[in-house]
Amino acid sequence: MLVALTVNGEARQADVPSATTLVELLREHLALTGTKVGCGHGECGACTVLLDGEPVNSCLVFAAQCDGREVTTVEGLSRDGELDRIQNAFVDAGAVQCGFCTPGMIMSAAALLASNPAPSRNEIEEAVSGNLCRCTGYVKIVDAVEQAASESSREAKQQTERS
């Protein structure tokens, strides 16, 4: 079946078997391997991407359900080879150990900050509660999202002052 969708702002299409999942489409047909497969059952969140702006477990979504829709993966966050503010915050805060859960964590954080630019620590913990990490203990991950949020607020404030 032919699936046509927008991935990271670019029109893409692929001829895939009918029961192909979104994560299989991304990794095996579109060579976007930033999205990881952990459990394959929607429990670990490693495969989190944005579908029309909403975070989804891409192992639980069929490619056919994404026809005509917009997908954002972790590869779609950077601009001109520069990491975005959430990715930088993860680096700065040391919120990465093995790194396997990181793309999913970052995409959940991106969804949160898009809808709630100044979340509380509890709201951050809630937003990444579907993303399991077996290395870090989560504290630095929440720190990183908090840092990214405060940087966004500072940038927004500076822009308002300039205009």
């Binding site: 009918s18 029961a19 026809d67 829709r69």
Partner: peptide, 15 residues
């Protein structure tokens, strides 16, 4: 079949 949006379903064959 899975509901996608207004009036649209995505149909998946399990062969």
């Amino acid at each position: 079949s899975f509901y996608v949006k207004y009036g649209k379903y995505a149909t998946v064959l399990f062969p």
